[in-house]
Each structure stands twice: as structure tokens, then as C-alpha cells.
Design a protein around this nucleic acid. Structure first.
Lengths: 344, 344
DNA sequence: TTGTACGCGTTATCAA
DNA sequence: TTGATAACGCGTACAA
């Protein structure tokens, strides 16, 4: 337990002032004579006074703390988003309480409870892959607690959110592969109830359509976890087709690298035999051989934008009613894995 | 602002009870008639009562929140440690407040202030690379706030901490390279004021000594950031030597992979010409070509152990006086980069 | 078993 | 400009 500490009333007693006066002197809010203000500050300094934020929070009904729920933190993406969140939040004088859902719905629901109990002033969420509904946010809405989503949301949901233009990202990646002369382009996708995977897929379709190519069902392989292993499995499936693809656009870097490894194991050369593009710009993406072409999302920027949006809602109750969306632009990072076919 | 909410006094009024009775009924502390307890719980449920933790915290002088300061979160290591921290903390009913120092001393000091202000019940820290003293923890000690370090601490400091046996890790890696028949083994190390880099270096020396080999100054290259770029720079320096090394033990995976890339650029084959071992088992380490031999630390376990140690100190004041250390065992992960020289 | 009364440290309101 | 006082919601001695 912390040692007993100097409080506002200690200062008041010492200076023969009322606590309210001291409080105002310290917060610099109301009009206060320069003389007493100085006396107060000086003694505060001397006693090494530290404001008790808990008490202030109780009184004001505001904890100056923001809650963040992410699926995980060991990938590059969410780690960077959280970094952005923290930077902007701290800047604004808010603390960040972190929760990981481990891609699990039940865990996510528990996280929400936790943050409500902790009395955070607002919540930032990116959904777990296993989340199909918003039930667990009911209490948050009831309390009229500010809530902002980022990156992963449910398709067709009307909520405040900061997202990347995933469709455009998928479009960019696929168009790039087309530009390299590829015609049979496969897609490795994720759970379609999540905006990000659905939109990336749509972008893929859009690019094909634009090139006058059909979307062949056989060439679209969806997986649940978007893991390394999923990539390998998908490749096995694709290579069993009568005619194999000459390029692959994966909606995630992990799956893309899993695919890369599997392709090599099957004796296929990347990009010569099969060109490859991923999504997400994970750390390892530039360390594979060949280096992986991928889509960069503005991770830190996303975190910062989400916090700013949330803080506006925290400060202005009226803004909590109408959902607002912020859309960031993704960028194509051309690297080796999608190069042109070499004329042998 | 959250909507007005049911408090224990609301329940009390409704039931014609005293708040204290309700309080006890809910917390199940004192003796309470089964009848009233049931009535209270039922109404609480009905009114969707949520305890106000802020008020409880103020009253009890305990926030049930733990603070964590890490240098960053975008590497694999700290991400996993934080995951472990969160799991165990939540399990025990504690929240986690996260701060990143960005490897910067000043930032770290600010983080400490932040956490003190937030009135956390205890602090977990892994030092920034630029931290050379403990000054900024003075206030923490003054308040007798529980403080536990993990992974990175200052050499020779007498504090409570959970660390990996880095010396043994360095020893394992180096001995492994020796066992592959290498004799001129270089070392890429980090700032020696931090235990982890110092100890890994010591382990390297120990293995060489044991093999009857000298530690050649020329073969030891230290760098500040342990980044990818540092690895490349170090390689340039090593290759400028009259006789180049036939193996390298790097105290970090990033540097190791930077070295790997540089070696390849110089036309050297890994492991044939130069065998390579890293430290830390980053995600990308198994995705490079060749796959990187490295040392695995028990990240999540470390986070969990640190929280447990901290919580003991939170609950039992007397335990805060004598520093305790917990040492985890590292494991060697043999992969391709350290294979035997192939007889051509 | 239950009720009374007070304090945790702040801030906000009203009066002086 | 300052002071007195009442909350914020909960926990806990002490009394009944």
C-alpha cells in the first residue's frame, strides 16, 4: 500500500484556507488571487503533493482512461495500431487499458464487461474473427458510452469506425498482378462476415471484372484463421486443379507466406511460375525470399484517428448519436514476389 | 457521460435497508441472513447494478490495476510477454494499463509518472535501451509501490525481477556453433549496461573458454539499436578483417537477419561459409532462408511470472523489502542457418 | 443480523 | 476572491 500522502486538505490546513480554495488554486480554474495561488503551488511542491485521480474521477464521473480491445497484439498490425492509440491518448491526457480477445467471442464479451467495470470513458474495438454479432456491446450502448470500432467491423453495421479502404487495397493488389501479365489469379480469403475480408475479396473481383476476366469459384479459397498453415492447405487445393493459377492474391500476409513456402515445396518458382501478393505488410514480409509484395495499411495513423474520433465523442455527448466513419487509403508495396515472368 | 446508474443506495432505498447491509450482502463479507442476501442480489440483477470500482478503489486505496512499461510492442517478444501479463492479471481480477517507452529514457520516466498518477497498485517494467539509471523510479520507492522488473534490468542492480538466464542462452548458442565445427566465432552484441546483452556476451565467452579458444576483440562487434541495419553494418566490419569468421552469434534476431542479408549480398553462403545463430525467436526467424537458429525465451511464462511476483508484493507489504529474482531457462532452437559445412 | 455515521479526496454550487 | 457544504459510491468501525 502506498504511503500516506499529502492531500488538498493538508495544504488547506497548513495555509488556513478552505479546501475549495486550494482545489481551485491548483486547477487554475476559477478566479484566484495571484498571491494565494502562489502560496498553494509552493506548498504543494514542497509537500510533493500528487493529485488523487481516483477521487477526481469519482467526483467527475470520468476516469480519463480509454479501453482498447484487440484480437491480439503479436502481429505487426495491431501492435502498431496500439502504438498509435497510446501516443495520441497520452498526448490528450488519457490512459490506455489494454485487452486482448485472442480472436475469441466469449473473451471479447468479457473484455467489454471488464472495461465497463473499470469505468473507462470510452472503448475502442477491433472485432475477433469469431464475432458475428454486437450483443455484447448492448450494455455499452445502454450506458451511452462512446464506442469506436477500427479495422474489423461486421458487414453492413452502422457504427462509428476507422477503417482502411480494403476494397481498394484488394483492387490495387490484383490489378498489379494483372499488370504483370497474369490471367489466372487465385484468391486466398478470410471469413466473409468481417468487412476486411469481404472487401478485399470485392476488390479482387472488381479488378478482374475491369480486366474482362471472370471470377472463377475454383480459384477462391477461404480459410478461417488466415494462418501460415491455412496458406499451405489452400495451395494444396489450388494445385489439385486441372489448371493451376499463375498468380495468387492473399488477403493476409501470414497466409501468403504459408502459400509461398508450400509453392516452393512443390517445386514452383515465385514469381516465375506463380506470382504472389499479400496484405498487411507484416515485419517478416520483407524478409522472405523472394520478398513479399503486399498492401500497407496506415496502422499508427489508424490508431490515432480512432482515438481522436473517440475523444470527440467523449467530450461531446451529442456526437455519440450519429455514427461516423473514417476511411484511410492503403498503399501497394511492390516487391519481388510479384515480378514479371522471366523469359527463360 | 454514462447514464445515471443504479447504486447500492438505490437498492437500499427500494428494499428499506441500510446501504451498509446492501454492501455486505453484495460482497458476501459479514454475516447476513440468507433472506436479505437473496432479496438484494435479486434486485441488483434486476436493476442491472454494476459496482462502481472507482468508488471502491478510492475507499480502499487500491485500484485493482497494474501498470506495465515496455520498450515497444511491435516485436514478438514483448507482445507475448504482455499477453502473458494480461492473462494472469485478468485472471486475478486486475486490469492492465499499458505504456510504451519507445526505447527512450525520458519517455520511460514520463510513463512512470503516468502510472503513479493513475494510482496503479503496482508496476511492471522492462527498461528502454537508453536507460542507464533508476532515478525515475525514486518516487515509486518513496511510495513503497510494488515494482517488478522483467527481462531488461541494469547490471548489478538489486531489484525484484523475472529474467531469462541469458548467459546460459548465449552459452548454448555458441556451444552449438562450436559443435558444428566452427572455430572463428564472432559475436554481435548490444549495449553492455543492460543485463541481457552483457550476459549473452558472457555466455559466448564462457563457451569459447570451455573450448580452449580465446575471445578475440576483433570478432566482437557491439551496436546500439540491435536493428536490421546494425547487422549489415557489423558484417561489413567483420568482412574487412584479414581473416573472416566462420560463424556468428548475434544477441538479437533482428541483427542476425540483417547479418544474414548482408552475408548473402557479399556472396557468402549461410551456413556453408558462415554459420549463424540469433537470439529471441522472432516470428520472422523461421521464415528466412535459411531458417534462423535462435534461442527461445519463455515470453508468456515470463509475463505471467512477473505478474504473480508483483501481486504477492501487492498483497503482502512485507514482501516489498527484499528483492526476489526468478530465472527462466532459455531453449536452443536448431534450424538451418547453423548447419554443418557441406563437403562440396 | 442490521443500522448509524463517517471518511476516502475531489469538485461544484451557493453564499458571503 | 474566498468559504462552507454537499455530493460522488462504497466500506467499515461501532452501536443497536
Amino acid at each position: 500500500m502506498a504511503l500516506k500522502h499529502a492531500s488538498i486538505s493538508d495544504i488547506a490546513k497548513e495555509l488556513n484556507l478552505a479546501v475549495s480554495t486550494v482545489s481551485r488554486a491548483l486547477s487554475g480554474h476559477s478566479r484566484i488571487s495571484e498571491a494565494t495561488r502562489q502560496r498553494v503551488w509552493q506548498l504543494a511542491e514542497q509537500l510533493n503533493y500528487q493529485p488523487n485521480h481516483l477521487a477526481a474521477a469519482l467526483r467527475k464521473g470520468r476516469s480519463n482512461t480509454l479501453g482498447v480491445i484487440v484480437p491480439n497484439i503479436d502481429g505487426h498490425f495491431f501492435a502498431l495500431v496500439v502504438k498509435g492509440v497510446e501516443a495520441v491518448a497520452n498526448q490528450a491526457g488519457f490512459n490506455v487499458m489494454l485487452c486482448q480477445s485472442n480472436e475469441d467471442y466469449a473473451h471479447e464479451a468479457k473484455n467489454v464487461e471488464t472495461l465497463i467495470n473499470a469505468q473507462v470513458d470510452g472503448i475502442l474495438v477491433s472485432l475477433a474473427r469469431t464475432t458475428h454479432d454486437f450483443k455484447h456491446f448492448e450494455k455499452v450502448r445502454q450506458r451511452n458510452m462512446p464506442l469506436v470500432f477500427f479495422d474489423r467491423i461486421l458487414n453492413g453495421s452502422d457504427v462509428s469506425a476507422v477503417v482502411v479502404d480494403d476494397q481498394h487495397g484488394g483492387y490495387l493488389a490484383t490489378r498489379h498482378l494483372l499488370a504483370q501479365g497474369r490471367r489466372r489469379i487465385a484468391h486466398l480469403g478470410g471469413p466473409q462476415h468481417l468487412n476486411i475480408y469481404k472487401d478485399r475479396y470485392e476488390g479482387y473481383c472488381q479488378a478482374l471484372r475491369e480486366a474482362g476476366l471472370p471470377v472463377e469459384e475454383d480459384l477462391v479459397v477461404l480459410s478461417k484463421d488466415m494462418s501460415l498453415a491455412d496458406g499451405a492447405v489452400s495451395i494444396r487445393q489450388l494445385l489439385a486443379l486441372p489448371q493451376r493459377p499463375d498468380a495468387i492474391f492473399s488477403a493476409g500476409d501470414f497466409t501468403a507466406v504459408g502459400a509461398l513456402q508450400a509453392l516452393k515445396e512443390h517445386g514452383l518458382r515465385v514469381p516465375h511460375d506463380v506470382a504472389l501478393g499479400g496484405f498487411g505488410n507484416e515485419t517478416f514480409s520483407s524478409l522472405t525470399e523472394p520478398q513479399l509484395t503486399t498492401i500497407d495499411q496506415q496502422c499508427e495513423e489508424m490508431g490515432g484517428a480512432a482515438v481522436r474520433l473517440l475523444l470527440e465523442m467523449v467530450q461531446e455527448t451529442s456526437l455519440r448519436l450519429t455514427p461516423r466513419k473514417i476511411v484511410l487509403e492503403p498503399h501497394l508495396l511492390m516487391r519481388e514476389s510479384s515480378g514479371r515472368r522471366q523469359e527463360a
